[in-house]
């Protein structure tokens, strides 16, 4: 993408975002409230200023020679890889509470490492175990904030009980 295209998209996105937020401030509930007691006055001011900024960004893209100011460069990125790690992180955060810390992390960590192109199992397995056990005890025992879901203590009980 050229700087001009990126700046045009960015400016458009800002305008769109402004519109989205502006829609949230509508309604006549506070129509006759004094300014200091009107919850929508300040956000509305911000939205209008932001839309103005978006317009300036678009104007810059259209009016400058390269479509960007001097010093602005377009980074070359590998988008599929960015999408991959974002999707993995999103899945991890989504199941973090319902599955619990140990299960969610036990699935995510090896999967993410392998997906990012690192295949040495002799490193991945011990690292995963250390992270699982270490972080669980650090939070549950030292910080007194028990991570969600079944914990190491349940696991131990299950193991000794199953014997």
């Amino acid at each position: 993408m050229t700087p001009r295209v990126i700046n045009l998209i960015a400016g458009g996105a800002i305008l769109g975002l402004s519109a989205l937020f502006y829609a949230q401030t509508l309604g006549d509930r506070f129509a006759d409230t004094p300014l200091s007691r009107n919850p929508m006055a300040f956000p509305r001011l911000l939205v209008l200023l932001m839309a103005l900024g978006g317009a300036v960004v678009i104007a810059q893209a259209l009016l400058t020679r390269r479509g960007a100011l001097p010093g602005e460069a377009v980074p070359a990125l590998n988008w599929p890889r960015a999408a991959l790690i974002t999707a993995l992180a999103a899945a991890y955060f989504w199941v973090f509470e319902p599955f619990g810390f140990l299960i969610a992390t036990g699935l995510f960590l090896p999967l993410a490492v392998v997906a990012l192109g690192y295949r040495r199992l002799l490193v991945i397995v011990p690292v995963t175990l250390v992270v699982l056990v270490g972080l669980w005890y650090l939070f549950a025992q030292v910080f007194q904030i028990r991570p969600p879901g079944p914990g190491m203590d349940d696991l131990l009980r299950l193991m000794t009980g199953g014997r």
């Binding site: 955060f93 960590l109 990012l116």
Partner: peptide, 29 residues
């Protein structure tokens, strides 16, 4: 550490650290 391992562990740290502040899954989103 090898970058894939490091980045994976960082995501885990971010997850548990952020969750623990308010014990709220919405914060992860």
């Amino acid at each position: 550490a090898p970058e894939p391992v490091l980045l994976g562990v960082i995501v885990v740290l971010l997850g548990i650290g952020t969750f623990s502040v308010n014990y709220n899954a919405f914060d992860l989103k």
